[in-house]
Computed example of a mutant assay.
Amino acid sequence: MVKLDTLSIVIPVYNEARTIHQILDLLRELELVNGIKKEIILVNDCSTDASAATIRAYAAQHPTMGLRLLEHAVNQGKGAALHTGIREATGDYVIVQDADLEYDPEEYNLLLKPVLKGFANVVFGSRFMGGNPHRILFFWHSIGNAMLTFLSNMFTDLNLTDMETCYKLFRRDIIQGLSLQEKRFGFEPEVTAKVARVPDLKLYEVGISYYGRTYAEGKKIGWRDGFRAIYCIIKYGLLKA
């Protein structure tokens, strides 16, 4: 059994004042397997709402959580927020958590399982495998996700079922050792292409739940991001940029 001391949880935040307390409540109540500690890093990407003030108020109410709030002076994008949070992480492993409620932090323990057993040093949480709940929403989004994952697999020679998943768990030295460039939603294909080239990579996938949001509920990703993802798959896969 591999021993882990701390898991760093990196949360990019942009205009999530209405719901950020809900994800923080879930993280506060979360018990990680084997007593693993949590380092929670929130990166406010120059939100135009009260996200920063809401997080500070929450941190003041729950000082034992040790929340770390980092701020961008100008809006740079989700990828840039992740770059900042990953760079500042100090835990043994790093996981990405969106500020919305589409993913369930209780399932961190599912992703940690192959790590603790010594099988994996990177784990992706797949929304499209296993018997976990999956909200039925947009047909063309599901087709788009499948096509992007298929195209990514062609270039990386991996057999992932969900390249675009938010839940990606990395050993800290692996993710901090990657030179990441994409500042917006191109983060997912770029990090997948680059991690696939890491020597001695032990990549696993586990099934996770997915409680997707509609655009009315705050979903931000759109068709333009799909075209950017294709560009990134080719750039970082074929050209190895």
Rank of each mutant, 00 (worst) to 15 (best):
M1Q: 05
V2Q: 11
I9V: 15
V13T: 14
T19N: 11
T19Q: 11
I23N: 00
L24W: 01
E29W: 03
V33S: 10
G35T: 08
I36M: 06
K37F: 00
N44S: 09
S47A: 05
T48N: 07
S51A: 08
A53T: 12
M65R: 01
G66H: 08
V74R: 13
I86P: 03
I86C: 08
R87K: 15
G91H: 03
A99V: 04
E102K: 02
D104L: 09
D104N: 15
Y108V: 00
K117R: 15
G118L: 05
V123K: 05
V123T: 10
G130Q: 10
G131R: 13
G131D: 15
I136D: 14
F138G: 01
W140L: 12
H141R: 12
S142Y: 14
S142F: 11
I143S: 07
A146I: 05
T149C: 11
T156V: 11
T165Y: 00
R171I: 02
R172Q: 06
D173W: 02
Q176D: 07
E182I: 03
E182V: 03
K183S: 07
R184H: 13
F185R: 02
F185S: 06
A193D: 05
K194T: 09
D200T: 00
K202H: 12
Y215K: 05
A216K: 13
W223E: 08
W223A: 12
R228I: 03
C232R: 11
C232T: 14
I234G: 12
G237V: 10
L238K: 07
L239W: 14
